[in-house]
Amino acid sequence: MRNFVIILSFIVAGIISAVMIGFDMEGIASDTYYDDEQEGLQEQIIIRFSHVAAENTPKGRTATKFAALLEDKTNGKVKVHIFPNAILYNDANEWKAVQNGSVEMIAPATAKISEHYPIWQILDLPFAFPNYRAVEAAYEGKIGKALLEGLEHTNVKGLDLWYNGFKQITTQESVIRTPDDFSRLHFRTMPGAVIQEQFNQLNASTSILPFNKTYQNLKVDFVDGQENTLSNINTKKFYEHQQYLTISNHGYLGYGVLMNRDFWNGLSSQVQESINEAMHEATAWGRRHAIEINDQHARAIRSNQSLEIYTLSAEERAQWRKALRPVYNEAEQTVGSDLMEEIETIKENYAH
């Protein structure tokens, strides 16, 4: 009982002292919860950018460049959180993700956009671009402008076209030299009418598979081969289950950079201007460095003893072009004569 009285006396004394001295509750709350690093977080804008390529590829490195440029231009107000390697969404579901706002940005291959807007298939025509200068003429000229403007009344905003490189063929059982070598082989492909028709003309069967599922399907021999750029072949280690690589340059792989339109419309004009500026500069950076990046991966691949590399001769390339010419006739029905004439003009202007 005596101990209880002593303890009660201490408690009463404490209460009396508190009343007399007073609590600075406002100061305590401020000291506990205030953090100057939190200033402006309510104003900060986060852009979630999902893509399927590795970080050390033209797309991966251009995305990183864009994020750095935009953060710098907005003094940190806008931050781009990049999710590479399909860690959020793969190329089978990223389109839906940007449509419903689960992410703000994606950069799918042009073939995947053509699945929704068929006019985009013009960029996947085989042997449409004799060299990198021809690709630039298409991306930054009449064709690129028409494709991006064609999205104006949709729920995605077309920001720009990004560069990667020319596509090559890998196989497991035998090297591909002539169109006849494709016969009865089974290839992994991206979606897109032009790409499907390309393999139809070569008498090959196809399965449309997400990019991040390609390695596994090569491993279990579900598909015999695939087409891709050297940077993608190397970073995804397709060579571990492919014995032959044909340097064909038969098509070009590039990307459309897309943003959710509702998100875009909700931004201030100043932020929109900063995004456009950062995008323009990142695209120019990517155009200059895409060739270099693919060359780095080409050197790595050539040092890989597990791959047998074959480069098409001029005669063999002519055979491929002849075999694939019907793809153009099929595409013109969808793309229209104006853009098809433009692609033919580019081919002629940059043939040498």
Rank of each mutant, 00 (worst) to 15 (best):
M1F: 13
R2P: 04
F4G: 03
I6K: 07
V12D: 01
I21P: 04
S30L: 13
D35M: 11
D35H: 11
D35L: 09
Q44W: 06
T57N: 13
K59V: 15
G60R: 09
A63T: 12
A67G: 11
K79V: 15
V80Q: 01
N93L: 06
V98A: 13
N100Y: 02
T110W: 04
I113W: 08
D124K: 04
L125S: 10
P126W: 08
F127N: 07
F129C: 06
I143L: 12
L151I: 08
T154C: 11
V156I: 13
W162S: 15
I169C: 06
I169V: 15
E173S: 07
R177Q: 09
F182V: 08
L185M: 15
R188Q: 14
T206N: 05
F211I: 08
K213S: 13
D221G: 10
F222S: 11
G225R: 06
Q226Y: 08
K236D: 12
F238A: 03
L245N: 03
S248Q: 03
H250D: 04
V257S: 05
M259K: 09
F263H: 04
S269N: 12
Q270S: 10
Q272N: 12
E281A: 03
T283G: 03
W285N: 07
A298E: 10
R299E: 15
I301M: 05
N304K: 10
S306N: 12
S306P: 04
L312N: 11
R317N: 07
K322E: 11
L324I: 03
R325P: 00
P326Y: 01
Q333N: 12
L339C: 02
M340G: 08
E341V: 03
K347P: 00
A351C: 00
H352D: 00
H352Q: 02
